Computed example of a mutant assay.
Amino acid sequence: MKEEVAIFVYGAEQICASCVGMPSSKETFEWLDAAITRKYPNQPFTIQYIDIFNPPEEKKHQIFASRVIEEDLFYPVVTIGEEIVGEGNPKLKDIYKEMEKYGYEEVSIK
C-alpha cells in the first residue's frame, strides 16, 4: 500500500430531499466503514463522518460542508483526497476504484 487513505462522509441527520427512501448519511457512513474494512483487511484507512450543518473547526471541512449546502449536492457526499467519489447513494465500486489508485488491494479470504 502506498498511502493511507482518509475518507470523509459529509452528510446530515435529515435525509436530503432528493434522497428520500435511501439510508441516512450516518447509516451510509457505518455501511461504508464495514464494507471497506472487509474488502481491505489489515490495510489501514481512516473514515470520518462530517455533519454539514455542524462541521469541525478544521477549515477544509467547513469549506467543503458549505459547498455541499450551497451547490445542493446530494448527501452524503463521500470524498477521498480532493475527489468526490460518491454522492447521494455512493457506489462501492467507485470508492474501491479510487482506493486502488492509492495502492489498496483486495484480500481473498479462503
Rank of each mutant, 00 (worst) to 15 (best):
E105S: 12
V5Q: 03
L32I: 08
N89S: 06
E83H: 06
E105A: 07
S24R: 12
G88P: 04
I52T: 06
T46D: 14
V85K: 09
E106N: 09
I47T: 00
V77I: 01
K91D: 07
M99C: 05
E30H: 12
I69K: 11
K39M: 07
G103R: 06
E98M: 14
D94K: 10
Y96G: 03
K110V: 11
V68C: 15
K97P: 02
K59C: 02
P56L: 09
K101W: 10
S25I: 01
K60P: 08
Q62C: 10
T46M: 07
T28H: 03
A17G: 13
Y104F: 13
G103V: 10
I80W: 00
D33I: 04
E87K: 00
K110F: 13
C19D: 14
Q14N: 09
N42E: 10
A65Y: 08
V78K: 03
Y75S: 13
F74W: 14
G81Q: 00
F8C: 13
C16E: 14
S18Q: 11
I80Q: 00
V77C: 09
I109V: 14
E83N: 13
Y10T: 12
E57H: 04
M1I: 04
L73C: 12
Q48N: 09
E105Q: 13
N54Y: 07
K91F: 02
I36D: 05
P44C: 02
F53R: 08
A12S: 15
K93W: 01
E13N: 15
N54M: 07
A12C: 11
V9Y: 08
F29V: 04
I52Y: 03
I69T: 14
I36L: 13
V107K: 13
I7A: 05
E82L: 06
